[in-house]
Every structure is written in structure tokens, then in C-alpha cells.
Simulated assay, not measured.
Amino acid sequence: MTSKLSYIDSGQGTPLVFLHGFCGSKDYWQDLLPLLESKRRVIALDLPGHGDTEPNGKDYQIEDLAEDVHQLIEELGLTDFYLFGHSLGGYITLTYADTYPDKLAGFSLIHSTAFPDDEKGKEGRVQAVQSIKENGIKSFVEGLVPKLFADKDNADVERAIQIGLNTSASGAVGALGAMRSRKDRNDVLKHAKVPVLLVAGEKDEVISSEKTFSVHGPMINEVTLKESGHMGMFEETEKLAEAILAFTE
């Protein structure tokens, strides 16, 4: 089942497409995009059940989300574009790169990983679903978001919470199931024929640098944001913009 994705599209030049993380939206990129759009065309979208995109049913896979993205890419007529995925968005990016490698000029994982959930991670997804069903999305988002930042007192924590509150409960539950069942895609990194940018936060408590930098090779570019947790687009916006512009030259 496909969803019609809400998106923003600005700037001109080489197209860069941005996929947000779990309980995020296109607003996750609102500080970053102005630093790019004078030199690049930037497109940021809302995944199903997030931001302004309606939920598409609660039982779906990462592959279904990649197909939603592909449908929008086709509508926009994009070729030779760069795909950037934050966290959940990175899992979708890897799936897209696996399925449609010829469409991409390059791709990037930002605070994400090619590894699947381990058993502890899978159990955490189940508990998260239970929490949302029992206590609602507001309580869940307010508990989740501070863990994503290196500095829990950062003013952007509240901003990210407000963005997260635009996630529907069914959208969050659907995404949790998709993340829980995703497969190992380290082979996509190993066999990439286009440049890959891996971005990790040195203070990320959600996905460690080791999990992000899982593959090394001539096509792999690694960037560490020294002061960031899981939210480099908020925490070190300018450094992330510099890395993206250098990668997409």
C-alpha cells in the first residue's frame, strides 16, 4: 500500500533528497536546508504517519517505505540524485540503493546503520509499541526525544518533541514494525558503485560510530560530528552542511 508523501522542494542544481528519522518529519531539516539550497536542489519529505503524510496502514516493511519514496522520485522525474537518510530514513535509503542503484549519484546514512536489530533491539521495538498503545504518542515522544541529543538541555530538544508530536500513533507503530523486521544490508555498502557518505555522532547513544562505520572502502566517506548525539542536523548543522556540500560536489 503506497502513501502520497508530503514534501518540500526548493533551490536548484543537483537534487538532494532527505528522509527523516523515526517520529521526525521534513521539519528535522529546517535549519540545514537553507545552508544547501543556494547551491543544490533540496527535497525533504514526510514518511507515512509522520508530519503531514497520512498513515498507510500499520503492517508494512522497510521495502514498502522505499517504494513510497520511489513513487515520489518518479513523480518528480529525478535521476542522478543523492539520497540522505537519518536513522529510520537511513534504513530506507539502503533499501532504495539496493533496489534502484542506477537512479542514484550517491547516498548517505546519517546516524544510521546497515545492521539489523539485534534481539535486544527487537524487544525494545515491541516494548515501544506497547508503550504507545497504553500511554499514547505524546508520552512516548516526550520520553524518546531527549535521549537523541548529546545535550539534554539543548533548546532544540523541545523543538524536536513538537515535531515528533505530529507523528500518528499508527504511523509510529507501523515504523517500529518495519524497523524490527529489517534485514542486514551491509552488502549494499560493500558493493556500492556510487559514493557513500556515513555520518556518525561521537556522542550518539542510539547508534554508535562502530555500527555506522561498518564497512570501509574506496567508495565510503566517513564523517564524525564530535559534539553530536543522534541529531547532527540540529546539533552541528553547519558541519553537516559542509560535509554534504563536499560530498555532492
Rank of each mutant, 00 (worst) to 15 (best):
E249G: 13
V17E: 04
K138W: 03
D156Q: 13
F149D: 09
S108I: 01
E227M: 11
S139G: 12
P101S: 03
T212K: 01
T248Q: 09
G21R: 07
P195R: 11
D187P: 03
L19M: 13
I244M: 12
F213M: 13
D68C: 05
T212N: 02
F149V: 07
Q61R: 14
D9I: 01
K4Y: 06
K138P: 00
V141D: 10
L165M: 10
Q71Y: 01
D64E: 02
C23S: 14
H216W: 03
A150E: 12
L109V: 06
L225K: 08
T212D: 03
L45M: 15
I62F: 05
E142N: 12
H86Y: 03
N221S: 14
L197P: 05
P34S: 06
T2N: 11
E54D: 13
Y100V: 01
L189K: 09
K26A: 10
H86L: 09
L35N: 07
M231L: 14
G229C: 08
E222Q: 13
P15M: 04
E67M: 03
F213I: 02
Y7L: 01
Q162Y: 04
D98R: 15
K120E: 14
P101W: 02
H111V: 01
E205T: 10
A169W: 05
K26L: 15
Y100W: 14
A155W: 08
L88I: 07
I161Q: 08
T113S: 15
E236N: 10
S214N: 05
T212M: 02
H86N: 14
S25C: 13
T53W: 11
L198R: 07
I43V: 15
P55M: 06
L94V: 01
V188L: 11
T95F: 00
E235V: 06
A105W: 04
G177N: 15
K39Y: 08
S108R: 13
P101Q: 02
D118G: 15
T113I: 06
H111G: 03
E238H: 10
L72P: 02
L19G: 06
G49F: 08
P195W: 10
P116L: 02
Y82E: 01
A44L: 12
A66H: 04
L104C: 01
L47Q: 14
A66F: 00
V69Y: 00
M233P: 00
G177T: 06
N56Q: 12
N186M: 11
S112L: 02
D31L: 10
T212R: 00
S25F: 12
I137H: 10
L197G: 01
Q61T: 14
D184K: 09
G77V: 08
L94F: 03
G90V: 01
F234P: 00
Y28V: 04
K4L: 05
H70K: 12
